[in-house]
Each structure stands twice: as structure tokens, then as C-alpha cells.
Write a protein that binds this DNA or RNA. Structure first.
Lengths: 348, 348
DNA sequence: ATGAAAGCGCTAACAA
DNA sequence: TTGTTAGCGCTTTCAT
């Protein structure tokens, strides 16, 4: 199991380590005689030589590792983002180290410490909560940081996200266009920029279009199906101010709302229309198929990686916010049919 | 951005690096005077000292990194596995490096090379295809390897998986118990042990229970919804030998089958029953809710990590196969109603 | 209990 | 074109 070292290769090729090192590095191999080079390459292959990334990193002062900190790999929008990041970074010789925080700020911090110990060349954080701003600001003094998907408060950061306010506006407008006047939103934790942005977009449209916001004040602790259901149940239990349309901050909660509806014998979209967010797998196969907002996840990953590369290139990148556009996907869970409970006083 | 080194800490604490090193290592800090130790600890904190993992790894000859190679992070059974692995490994001071292969054996190999260059202490592979056996065997000579979820041919490996044959037997038995006699399976790529195991389990039950296997010979190139639909369409287009029950090798294909059914105006489970595999998110919210087989993903991750730890402990672990049990989840997509097309000659 | 020094494997600056 | 050497930051053995 003892790995061959450069010294072994050099000995086998009958050259000195310096030469072997040069021959093996594409960027410098032109400095070495073609014949010698072949000899080294052959020896390396025969010995199964693999450069020791730790030794190299130690010497070069850079590890070639990029840390990626996410909240939860199970989150449906993450895989395409991770893929996008890797697609951009891999060919440049970087490797990504993915770590999860489970939405816990303490874990975020200790994870970043670990990544710092590894001497990652940059850190991508897509697990930020709004309150993590001070920490992020500190971190930025130690290593290039890019915030993916979620922002933190304050300026001066490098951010690649998509427009949550717009996404919510799209979704809510669609609901209003369908003729709904009493709307409610199912909110995710507002200390996450994605959800606070969505909340804002929803409220903007409700105000602009002169509709009524009948949301309950409660915010889901976790934006899960169970929570969405619980919240929706409260909404539906009302005798007045019952919404005819619901905007859920993500698909899981939308599914919960769907369940709550079915439980009390109401139909979607006939009685209540529902829009989700994220376009998670299988949402299009639900009954009814879920109208939702789709993030440009893959592009988001690539842009994030591109920004990392920019920061690493040495040229001073000024703080910036890249904001991609989400897309409304209209499916079966929204319709313009005016529901019974909301019928105007004088029959339509 | 220049990180503090141990030398800096030593200087600040007015001791020599060796002492600083000892003071900072919980395992050796008892060798150092309590007062000195506090002085070092304080200095370290003030300077924001973080050990350089590359330097330490280089010196110690081990990186504290565990490579985890997966096919596709988007695969629904993976997140719980990754979580299980991390839960077991994290507290032991290991960090995991996750890499994707996109089901490509060449990528698997180059990924492992990269991990070897990083000098990971062990590699977990859950992206193996049956044909990767020679490569895995070579790899095992260089680094401890644990195969998670998927096996490869041959003996001598360390494997933690679940019983695909049993899972398929459970699913198929359930279908037969429901009264079905003409069954078909939707196969995933048979060069993956999960799918070949499921294929085998299905065939065993069909034979044991004297049923008819009316599967088509084709195997899905990729086990996706689109492929599942395509395969199911062929099945349903038949005028004779049309199955009354379908066992899909995963939930995606099952959903495809559901779609195909709807497209030709057939109903599930009235006309055709369907069972999937994996219990992916949202499958329980489909219409009908999908009967499926659930892997003990989280436990699988923990056991995998435990085995890694075992291999790392130095005591020679003999090759072994840990096989956890899957669980059949019966929901709405399977029923005992004998479908029209399969009604016995003489009316019920 | 602490200091001194070697060396992990590699790259880069300098010499020849 | 190739050889030589210092040193990246750390742990560890051997002195003291």
C-alpha cells in the first residue's frame, strides 16, 4: 500500500527529482528533453505514481480544493447546482468538498473551520441564513467566499442567486390573473433570504393588484410537507377569510397544502389553487400536477463556479450580485375557476 | 489572508513549536505543563490558528479524508446514506469528500485517481457497475475500499448493501398475493447489482408461484421516467400477454408506467397494479400513492462508515457482505381487484 | 516538561 | 537541459 513517491520515479528514470517534477507537470514539461521526459513518464506509469496532493499543496500554498457548504443534500434544487459547479471546476483541476450544515449555523461555522484547516482555495456557501452575516464577513477575510442561492444581510459579498422576489411575483400574479382575490402564502423560515424574498414578492403583488392577504401569521419552522399541511389546515378551517389561492414557499409545503385540502374534501384547483416553488422531481406527476417556480439551478451552479474562478484568478473582483431569473411553470394546480366559497354576493 | 502557523503560535506563547504542537493536540497535551498549555491555547485562539491539514497529513501519512464516490447525488436514496456516513465519520475527525461519476466507469476511475492523489484514508464506492470488478480489485491494493449499496462480481470485497433480491421478492409476492398472474418487470441496467438483483428476485417469485413473466426483453438504458414510460407503453400496446401488474426497478420508472397507463386510458390499480423501488420523496403523494420498497438508507450509511472505521483500525477485517433488509410499503398503486383484461374465461 | 532537529513529498529558485 | 537545495507546516524522536 505504500505509494510511490517522486523520488522513486526519479530513481527509476535515472534523473533527479527536480527533473522528474518538471517532466510530470504539463505546464513545465517543455523545459525538459523529450527523451528524458518519456523516460520519466514511463517510470511514473510503471510505478503507478500519483502526485501527493498534500505535499504539493503544502509547497504551493494552495490545495486545489473548493469547499461547498450546503444545508441539506436532499434539497431538490441542489443536485443540479452541485453538478454545475463541478462541471466548471473539475476541468480546471479543482476538486469540490461538499459538506452539510443541516441548516444549523453552528454547524456552518465548524464546517467552515474544517474547510479552512484543509486550506481550501475558496468556499461556496449555499446554506447561509440572514443572521450568518457577521460570520461570513469574518470568513471573507480569510478565504474567497461566494454565496450561492441564499444571500446574507449587508453589502460587500459575492453572490450568485436567482430572483426570489420575481419568482414570487410571477407565481402570485398568475394566481391573481386566474381571478383570485383572497390569497395566502405558506412561509418558510424568514431568516433564509429565499423565503423572505418570496414573502416580499407575494406581498408586493397582493398590494399592487388590490388583493387581500389572508395568510396566517405563523411561519413554518421547517418548510416541510407536514408543516405545510398544518399551516394549510388552519387556513382552511376558517369560516371567513378563507383563501381561494395559496402560494407555498416550496413544493414540499405545497404538497402539504394539497393534502390538507383533500382531507377536508376540497378540490384543487376547483376550490383552491396552489403554486409551489422549486419544481422538485415528481411534482409534475402529482394529481393535480403542481404549478411551481423553477430555478435555473444548473446555470446557477456554473455561474457560481465561474465567480469562484474569477476570485481565484487574482484580479480583484468587486463584490457583486448575479441574479438569474426563475421561471413560472403552470400546471394543473392553478385554475381560473372562481371557487364556491369566494363567489361574489350576487351569483356570477 | 495569511494564516497563522504553529510557529507564530509558538512565538506568541514563548515556547518552541514542538511544545505548541503537543499543547494543541488533546491526545498529547497531558505531556505539557498546564500553565504553558493555557498560554499556547490562548495564543492560538488569539491568532485564529487553524492546523494546516495538508502539513499534518503529510507528516502523519494520513489525510483524515474519506472519499465517497456516488453515481448521482440526485438519486433519492443517496442523501440519507451520505448523512449516515457523515454522522458516523464526522465525530471521529474524518471529513468526507463526495464525488460523482454520472454512472460512467471512466469517470469512476479518474475520480478514484484524484482521491488517491489526495491520499484519502479510504474510499466508499456506491457507484459501482458489475464490470468495475477488476478496477475495484486493483484499487483495493492501494487503499481500503468499501462498496456501498452496489456490489461488483467476485469475492474478497467489503460490502454493505441491502437485499435487492429480497426486496424484489417482497414486491412481486405482494403482486401475486393480490391475485395477479401475468406480471412484467421494468428493468434497470443489469450491469448494476441493484437491478440484476431485483430482476432475479422477480423471476424467482414468478417461477415459485407459477405465474407468467410477460416482461419485454428490453432493459432501460437509464432507469428514468421517460424510459419507464416507453417500456410500459410497449407492454400495454399488446393485445395479448398484457400484464396486470408491473414491478418497476425504481420509482422513476414506476411513475413512467403510471403515465403510460393514463395515456391509454387505463387505471391504476384497477386495470394494472404497479410497485416501484426506493420510496423516493413524493411517491406517497402520487395518485395513486405508489407502493414501493424502502431501503434502510440511513442505517446503510452508518454501517458503511462503521466498516470503514473497522478497516482503518488496523485489525484485519476479513472481506464480508453486510446485507440489510428492505421493507415493502403498500400504498394505493396495488390492489387485488382482478382487472378486466385478465378476467377468467367464465365470469368471476 | 521542554527544546532541538529531522523529515514527510513536493516545487521553485538558483546553479551549473 | 538538468542538478541542487531550501523550505512549505507539521509531528515526533531524541536530548536535555
Amino acid at each position: 500500500m505504500a505509494e510511490a513517491t517522486l523520488k522513486d520515479v526519479a530513481r527509476a528514470a535515472n534523473v533527479h527529482v527536480g527533473t522528474a517534477s518538471r517532466a510530470l507537470d504539463p505546464a513545465r514539461s517543455h523545459l525538459v528533453n523529450e527523451v528524458t521526459k518519456q523516460r520519466v513518464l514511463t517510470a511514473a506509469t510503471e510505478l503507478g505514481y500519483k502526485v501527493n496532493a498534500m505535499a504539493r499543496g503544502l509547497r504551493k500554498g494552495s490545495s486545489g480544493l473548493i469547499g461547498v457548504v450546503v444545508g441539506d443534500v436532499g434539497n431538490p434544487f441542489l443536485p443540479p447546482i452541485l453538478r454545475g459547479i463541478e462541471q466548471e471546476l473539475g476541468p480546471r483541476g479543482f476538486m469540490t468538498v461538499v459538506a452539510e450544515t443541516h441548516e444549523n449555523s453552528d454547524v456552518l461555522q465548524s464546517t467552515c473551520e474544517q474547510l479552512l484547516a484543509l486550506r481550501v482555495d475558496a468556499i461556496v456557501i449555499s446554506a447561509a441564513h440572514l443572521g450568518d452575516e457577521p460570520f461570513v464577513t469574518e470568513l471573507e477575510k480569510l478565504v474567497p467566499v461566494v454565496l450561492g442561492v441564499r444571500r446574507v444581510n449587508g453589502a460587500g459579498h459575492h453572490i450568485v442567486t436567482h430572483d426570489d422576489v420575481l419568482g414570487a411575483r410571477l407565481a402570485t400574479s398568475h394566481l391573481v390573473d386566474c381571478g383570485h382575490r383572497q390569497l395566502a402564502q405558506l412561509r418558510g423560515p424568514l431568516d433564509v433570504s429565499s423565503f423572505s424574498g418570496r414573502a416580499e414578492g407575494f406581498q408586493q403583488i397582493v398590494a399592487e393588484r388590490g388583493c387581500e392577504d389572508v395568510s396566517i401569521d405563523v411561519v413554518a419552522d421547517e418548510p416541510t410537507t407536514a408543516e405545510g399541511k398544518r399551516l394549510a389546515e388552519q387556513l382552511l378551517a376558517r369560516t371567513r377569510n378563507r383563501p381561494t389561492a395559496i402560494f407555498a414557499h416550496n413544493d414540499s409545503m405545497a404538497v402539504g397544502a394539497l393534502e390538507a385540502l383533500a382531507d377536508v374534501g376540497l378540490s384543487c384547483p376547483r376550490d383552491v389553487s396552489i403554486v409551489g416553488y422549486n419544481d422538485a422531481p415528481l411534482t409534475e406527476h402529482l394529481e393535480p400536477a403542481l404549478s411551481t417556480v423553477r430555478l435555473p439551478s444548473h446555470a446557477l451552479g456554473r455561474r457560481t463556479a465561474a465567480l469562484v474562478l474569477g476570485l481565484l484568478s487574482g484580479e480583484a473582483e468587486p463584490p457583486s450580485t448575479v441574479q438569474l431569473q426563475p421561471e413560472l411553470i403552470i400546471r394543473g394546480s392553478t385554475s381560473s375557476r372562481v371557487p364556491l366559497a369566494a363567489a361574489e354576493p350576487a351569483g356570477a
